[in-house]
Design a protein around this nucleic acid. Structure first.
Length: 609
DNA sequence: GCCGTTTTCGGCCCGACTGTTTTCAGTCG
């Protein structure tokens, strides 16, 4: 079972428990664990194999034992019984927007609908025949809303339709630009998962600081690319764009905007944890500010004048909001409830193991995974840009160096001698171009002559030993036979990394967001090897963002060094560095963990270790 | 069912929006 399937199972259990009037905190526990599993960036089965289930927030003894049972026997007896206690149609209705557990139960029982295959049609018939209008609480509006929701569900709109981060980024920027043109908008920001730089985004969340919310909300629902208004109130609105993407807007006054930023950035689990943390101090948090619910003097916090019980204390910026709770400000990328609140507390108290000093885009001094258009008859796609274009772009980005890492010449088309000859020629040609550049001050970018080399299924590299004389270092990657078992794949990778010049493991898990799961490998072993022999990993191609953030965090914990490289095949793609940096930040990486924050001289030394 | 700067027991986030409500329940994020 996949992460999503397991999350759905727990969510369904929570729904059934809801109609059975179970302890509501038990229900919430199932919902929380579903959220938590859904958002994992590695396969829960791998975590189970590694004995790491209990590290997932929301998994305690009971649920860990359920998951153990699931992977050992294929099912969870106790939960299956719960699921079977309701009509199968119940779970169909649950997926309709606007229908929760109570209404789904009401409809299945009162209309006696049980067959999941015909459930939607049965429901539609019941509306048409006027059966539903006889029930108390089901007025005209409810019925017409239900009809619309069923239709939208049938068109597939309910389905999770997550988009890659850069894609969501560009949509959000357009809407923001539109809103910022309004004179009533004092400040406008992208929040939610987009601000936390989650690799795939569901809805786009925006917030605006304004003293005239009505004008802003009206303008928002009138956005030219909006197809329909889903929700609209005094505090915000939700629209659906023509491409089916949902955009949420929340408005707040400028003087209370800090609390809104905090609230709307999430994550949900971070916010719940933060509010629980606050409530133990007698404080209640919301998007409007902080309330002192007891009215007692708060002693151990930086802001001590919180005594008025009837007042909501407002914060114009987010830093003050966190500080008021006795915490240091937490960077959005860390807000996933994986220990960041505790770290912020330790830091505020001047203790060890505070928040990491996260790597910034400005700290990056070069990009080593770039494909040029030099044709060495490669096994995979050629780059589109010339060396000159790449250097110019690197200079624009204020880089000190770039690595030209074309794919190796294809094995099938060449014998070993030819491969050596091709690489020798490439080195000469690139060196010639590099040294004969216009001698202007601008052209100060240095070059590493590299290669991206396939690791074949047996673990061999795709160029002969003699050919390594013509490269400074290599990125080695998997481009074929992704479906090997974990043991063999791990051996293959380690074998590929064994060559002294194989310094970087490229797009390490092989995942393609939304289309291909990564291959299985023993990351403990790989990281240990990398640590011991000075090898490094990472990639920021938007559809890969690979290593995933959870693995980045493990690598960082183990002291493994990382590169953030773009795998650009065209000079403009070098801008994608920001997305790689965001993954590294979500993995708690600091400058010391990232090798391309080193200067050219330092990195050149590292290459030779 | 989870979890721990006060705790292994006894707590558990908070508000917006909607419909059909005269005060609230259900759903959502």
């Amino acid at each position: 079972m996949s992460n999503l399937e397991i999350a759905t199972l727990f969510r369904n259990v929570a729904a059934v428990l809801t109609i059975q009037n179970a302890n509501r905190f038990r229900i919430v526990a199932y919902e929380k664990v579903a959220d938590s599993i859904e958002k994992l960036t590695s396969d829960i089965k791998d975590l189970w194999k590694d004995g790491k289930l209990r590290e997932i927030p929301g998994i305690g003894d009971t649920i860990a034992s359920y998951i153990d049972e699931l992977f050992k026997t294929g099912k969870i007896k106790h939960l299956e019984a719960i699921i079977k206690s309701v009509s199968p149609a119940f779970f169909i209705f649950l997926q309709i927007p606007g229908i929760g557990p109570k209404r789904a139960d009401f409809l299945t029982s009162n209309l006696k609908i049980s067959n999941p295959k015909t459930a939607l049609n049965d429901l539609k018939k019941a509306i048409k025949s006027g059966k539903i209008s006889k029930f108390a609480g089901w007025g005209e509006k409810s019925q017409s809303e239900l009809t619309k929701s069923i239709a939208s569900f049938e068109r597939g709109h309910i389905k999770e339709n997550r988009m890659p981060l850069p894609f969501a980024d560009s949509i959000a920027m357009q809407v923001l630009e539109y809103l910022k043109k309004l004179p009533q908008v004092k400040q406008a920001d992208v929040l939610g998962s987009l601000r936390r730089k989650v690799p795939t985004i569901g809805d786009i969340d925006l917030a605006v600081a304004t003293n005239e919310p009505n004008v802003v909300i009206k303008a928002f629902v009138d956005y030219p690319k909006a197809r329909k208004t889903v929700d609209q109130g005094e505090k915000g609105a939700t629209i659906l764009l023509f491409d089916g993407r949902q955009v949420d807007l929340r408005v707040q006054t400028p003087k209370a905007y800090g609390a809104m930023l905090q609230y709307f950035t999430g994550s949900k689990l971070h916010n719940i944890h933060l509010r629980e943390f606050a409530i133990k101090k007698g404080l209640s948090l919301s998007e409007h500010g902080i309330k002192n619910i007891t009215g007692l003097k708060i002693k151990d916090l930086r802001f001590k004048n919180f005594n008025d019980k009837s007042k909501i204390y407002e914060f114009n910026d987010e830093v003050k909001f966190y500080n008021a709770l006795g915490l240091d400000w937490i960077p959005p990328e860390l807000r996933e409830d994986t220990g960041e609140i505790e770290a912020a507390l330790r830091q505020a108290q001047g203790k060890q193991q505070g928040l990491p000093k996260l790597v910034n885009l400005n700290d990056i001094k070069g990009d080593l995974h770039i494909h040029s258009n030099y044709n060495l008859e490669p096994s995979h796609d050629l780059g589109l840009s010339t060396l000159e274009e790449l250097i110019k772009q690197a200079d624009l980005l204020h880089y000190e160096y770039i690595g030209i890492s074309d794919h190796n010449p294809s094995i099938s088309g060449h014998n070993q001698l030819q491969v050596v000859e091709i690489l020798k020629k490439r080195r000469e040609k690139l060196e010639h171009i590099f040294t004969s550049r216009e001698n202007s001050v601008k052209n100060r970018v240095q070059i590493f002559y590299m290669l991206e080399i396939d690791i074949d299924p047996k673990g061999n590299l795709a160029i002969p030993d003699e050919a390594f004389a013509y490269i400074d270092a290599a990125i080695v990657s998997i481009h074929s036979n992704f479906k090997m078992n974990k043991t063999d794949m791990t051996k293959r990778i380690l074998s590929g990394l064994r060559h002294a010049k194989a310094k970087i493991f490229g797009h390490p898990t092989g995942r393609l967001l939304g289309s291909r799961e990564g291959y299985e490998a023993d990351w403990n072993q790989i990281f240990d090897f990398c640590k011991k022999f000075n090898r490094a990993v990472i990639n920021s191609w938007p559809e890969r963002l690979d290593l995933p953030d959870l693995l980045v965090r493990e690598a960082v914990k183990k002291g493994v060094k990382l590169f953030i490289d773009t795998d650009s095949h065209e000079h403009l793609q070098m801008f994608n560095m920001q997305y790689g940096v965001s993954v590294a930040r979500r993995g708690w990486a600091e400058n010391k963990d990232i090798l391309n924050t080193l200067s050219y001289n330092e990195l050149e030394k590292w290459m030779k270790i």
